[in-house]
């Protein structure tokens, strides 16, 4: 196992190298002069051609592409992520400020969707064909097809504006720093994100469970005379868990990238919002780092999924 993880991490290095190159290359292709984002347009218009050229020279914008790339990479390896072009704040500081917010929101949502999804899915499979199962299936369909922003807005309208139970958006009230004071802000966005993610997990869990319950070892389990709940949970659910874990595992990257839509609807100060703003402002330094973070998370998630699958299913061998 340890050997496998080490191998996997070593394998990530060339992959990351290629990906950083691609990110840098693609962003270099985007139209527009980087200088134009550095100062306000009026000042820019008053600059002479020589001054403009000198400015480019100081920022190293005239170097060949490969040289610029390696300079950037070197800085990156040393832990210098650059500065936000628009505000001058270090990128690392921006990430450090927005990442906890995103982790808080997506983590809660992931937890809600995983627990709720697997419980409802398994319950639906056990009670297959009953009214309850049909209702769940219909809700699952609706859940998969309703856009998150719409669902979010309806929830704001009902729970925040009409009922006034919960705040409309934001992450915290600066005057209240207690845990429960902050929890109030988390409930609505986390529930909306969680419930919209639940539908997928639920459908997955239900199908997987139904598949397992038709297997012959379930009949064997019944023939042993063990109680029905043991047949369902210990024999059925335990085997059906693997595909569900894979699905949830591949959702891990959203923990970092956040849900751009939900964060925007609820004005949640997370990475998703930062990324959104950075792309619009052509704030390339920031865009590159966030994209890179996302890529690392995807690679990380795939390793986690591999390991979890091997733990859950003894037939899967990691070292081969």
């Amino acid at each position: 196992m340890l050997k496998y993880i080490l191998k996997k991490i070593l394998g990530m290095i060339p992959m990351l190298f290629i990906i950083t190159f691609l990110i840098y290359f693609l962003l270099d292709l985007t139209p527009g002069d980087a200088v134009s984002h550095l100062m306000d347009p009026e000042a820019l218009a008053r600059l002479s051609a020589e001054q403009l050229e000198a400015l480019r020279e100081t920022y190293g914008l005239n170097d060949p592409f490969v040289v610029r790339y390696f300079k950037w990479l070197l800085q990156l390896v040393q832990g210098n992520f650059g500065y936000s072009v628009s505000s001058g704040v270090p990128v690392s500081q921006i990430i450090a400020e927005s990442l906890p917010a995103t982790l808080e929101l997506s983590g809660t949502a992931l937890l809600i969707s995983t627990l709720l999804g697997s419980i409802l899915g398994v319950a639906g499979a056990i009670k297959k064909g009953t009214i309850g199962d049909n209702v769940l299936t219909v809700f699952g369909m609706i859940g998969v097809s309703i856009p998150q922003f719409f669902f979010g807005m309806v929830c704001i309208l009902v729970f925040a504006l009409n009922l006034e139970w919960l705040p409309v958006g934001g992450r915290t009230d600066p005057s209240v720093v207690s845990f429960f004071g902050r929890l109030k802000y988390l409930i609505l966005p986390a529930s909306v994100l969680g419930i919209s993610l639940t539908a997928g997990v639920m459908r997955y869990a239900r199908t997987s469970m139904l598949d397992t319950m038709n297997k012959e070892y379930i009949r064997t389990a019944r023939s042993k005379g063990i109680p029905e709940w043991r047949v369902n949970l210990i024999h059925g659910f335990r085997v059906s868990l693997t595909p569900v874990v894979v699905l949830v595992g591949f959702r891990l990257p959203t923990l970092i990238a956040g849900s751009v839509v939900i964060e925007t609807v609820f004005q949640w100060p997370g990475v998703g919002q930062v990324f959104n703003a950075a792309v619009r402002a052509s704030n390339y330094n920031l865009v590159m780092i966030v994209a890179l973070l996302f890529v690392i998370m995807v690679l990380f998630a795939s390793t986690i999924v591999d390991i979890l699958t091997a733990i859950l299913d003894p037939r899967v061998k990691l070292d081969s």
Binding site: E216, R219, G225, I226, P227, R238, D313, R315
Partner: peptide
């Protein structure tokens, strides 16, 4: 009652041992 009979008084073995045991 049926469960207490199954396994203890009447036990069963199945056709395909490849699928009759739980793989996990």
């Amino acid at each position: 009652e049926m469960r207490s009979l199954r396994g203890q008084d009447i036990a069963m073995i199945f056709q395909d041992p490849m699928t009759a045991l739980n793989p996990v």
